[in-house]
């Protein structure tokens, strides 16, 4: 009594309007849209939203070096002025013997965010670089290390400095702030749009 085509197609409820419907097979360059609300319900196998994630993480990777090397703050006090960048700040911490603090800042604000973005890009870039097990492994480490990446906290620290030091020294935002803030935003977006199930969807074929 069952319809042959209907039985072979998987069933899924639309995430937007909840209508349960069959998902047709969708090839590259196409999407399945809900019959009722026209929102996307099906994507080609393995694609997920990975292309968008790849683009966002690539954009963040482009801006990341600028964000940490361009001066983020310009401090002026009694005629002395100093440009502060994140890279220069952590290096000078190390150079002044503050090894522990310097390493924490360097790792949490530069190394881990960079690795996280690079990992996301490697997982989602439309180039067959890694096997599915390697991708799973990379994803596991991104999840573990990602908790220690504090690039967004650093932005808050910069803002606090700009607001609180106002009376003692004059603090002006440098050109690095724009690049840095954009990097933070893109990095959050990349994590949010990434769909880890895409790794295993390809496997099912």
């Amino acid at each position: 009594m069952s319809d042959s085509t209907g039985a072979e197609l998987p069933l899924r409820g639309c995430p937007h309007c909840g209508l349960v419907q069959h998902l047709p097979s969708v090839s590259t360059g196409e999407v399945g849209c809900c019959v009722r609300c026209r929102q996307v319900v099906a994507r080609p196998k393995g694609e997920g939203t990975s292309l968008l994630t790849a683009a966002i993480s690539l954009a963040a990777l482009i801006l990341f070096p600028l964000g940490i090397t361009l001066p983020v703050l310009r401090l002026e006090q009694l005629g002395h002025s100093a440009d502060a960048s994140i890279w220069g700040g952590s290096i000078s911490l190390l150079a002044h013997g503050q090894i522990a603090v310097g390493v924490v800042v360097l790792v949490c604000s530069i190394v881990i965010p960079l690795l996280k973005l690079a990992g996301l890009f490697a997982l989602t870039a439309p180039i067959p670089a890694f096997s599915r097990t390697a991708k799973s492994e990379i994803y596991k480490w991104i999840e573990i290390a990602g908790k220690w990446g504090m690039i967004d906290v650093l932005l808050v620290a910069v803002l606090v400095a700009a607001v609180k030091l106002g009376d003692l020294v004059s603090v002006h935002p440098g050109p690095g702030v724009l690049a840095f803030a954009t990097t933070v935003l893109l990095s959050l977006l990349a994590s949010a749009t990434y769909n880890p199930h895409a790794i295993w969807e390809t496997v099912d074929e």
């Binding site: 009594m1 069952s2 319809d3 209907g6 197609l9 069933l11 209508l19 349960v20 419907q21 069959h22 998902l23 047709p24 969708v26 360059g29 196409e30 999407v31 399945g32 849209c33 809900c34 019959v35 026209r38 319900v41 099906a42 694609e47 292309l51």
Partner: peptide, 14 residues
């Protein structure tokens, strides 16, 4: 007999 509709396939410039 099948109560469920089938989603529409559309082209998309992804």
């Amino acid at each position: 007999n099948n109560p469920h509709p089938t989603a529409v396939v559309k082209k998309r410039r992804r």
